[in-house]
Amino acid sequence: MAIKLLKAGPFSSIQDLGRLDYLSFGVPKAGAMDTLSVRIANEALRNAAQAAVIELTYAQAEIEILSDMLLAYAGQGAVLANGKIPLPANRPLALVKGTRLKLIPDGMGCRTYLATTGGWDVPIAMGSRSTYLQAKIGGINGRLLQNGDILCATAWTTEHQSFFTQLQQSNRSFPLWYIGSGRNLTTPDIPVIRVVRGPEADWFSTESWHKFLSSAFEVDRNSNRMGYILEGHDIQRINKAELLSTAVLPGTIQIPGNGRPVLLMADCQTTGGYPRIAQVAAIDLPLCGQLKPGDQIYFQEISTKEAEVLYLDEQYYFQKIRRAIDLRYYTK
C-alpha cells in the first residue's frame, strides 16, 4: 500500500500530533498545524490518534496511487481530485492502483492532511514521527518531502480489505457519511479566535487589552510553522519587569518589545521570556493552523472554564463519531 509524490509541493512534511517527551530538554513539540483536520482524517480510517499524516501546504501536490488502498484527507484551502473529479473530504476513499490525484485550490486555508491505514510508515524519532527541520528529526530523514518520494501505509488488515471491497462494490469509491468539522471558513468574514487571558495579561493596560480584543490582526509574511507575527495594533506594556524564561506552548501569544503580537505555533521554542498576553483556546488553535500571510483574525476573550467546556464537548463529539464509524465499518 503505497503512494508516490509526483509533485511534493512546498513545505510538505510528515507530521503527527507532536513530540511531547523532550520539551524539558528544549526540543519543540512540532506536529501538525491543524490538529483537528489530522484527527478527522485519522478517525475516518479508524487510526490511532498518533498515526502519521502528510501535511500539504497550499495546493500544488500531485500523487500517484501505487497499489489499491484507503486514504482520507481533511483540511482547508484545497480539494483532492481524481483527474478533474473532486473527491469528498473527511471520509475514507478507496483508491485503485494507477489513480492520479492532485490538489486543487479551494477557498480559505492552506493546509491539507492526507492519512492512510495505520498512518504513513516512517521511523519514530524521539517519540514521534513529526518532522522537525531544525534538528533534522522525524519524517523521512528529518527533511521535507520531495518529488519522487514513495510512502507506504503502516497497516492493511482484513478489515481494511473488506471495507475497501465494500466501497468498490457500491460503485462509489467513498461512503456517503463523513465527519463534520464544525468549521465554517467559506464566509468572507474575518475568523474570530477565542483566547483566555495569559499569565502576564495584567502587564498591559486595560486600554491595550481592549485594543487587543477589538483590532483585526493580519498575519505578516515573515510567519511560518514556528509562529505568526501579527500586524494591526501594537500592544504597549505598562509593567516593564523582566520575565524569567518560562514555558510557552503552541497558541501562546507573546508581546515582544516592539509591541507586535506573536502567535506561537507548532514548531515554537519550548520556553520564552516575553510576556504572554493570551493563550488561544484549544478548540480554535487548529483553525489558526490554516492561516497564511495576509489572512486576518480577531481575538475574543473567553474564560478558562468556558475554554475547557468547549474542549470537553469536542472530545464527547469525537467519542460519538468513533462509535458511529465503528458501526459503519462492521456493518455490511
Binding site: L20, L23, L244, T246, A247, T270, L312
Partner: peptide, 20 residues
C-alpha cells in the same frame, strides 16, 4: 501529557477530558 521545566517554573500539560 508532558512537563516543561524552566528557571523557576514547571509547566504541566494535560488533557482535561482524560482527567475528568
Amino acid at each position: 501529557l508532558t512537563t516543561v521545566a524552566a528557571y523557576t517554573t514547571l509547566c504541566i500539560q494535560y488533557d482535561p477530558f482524560v482527567l475528568k
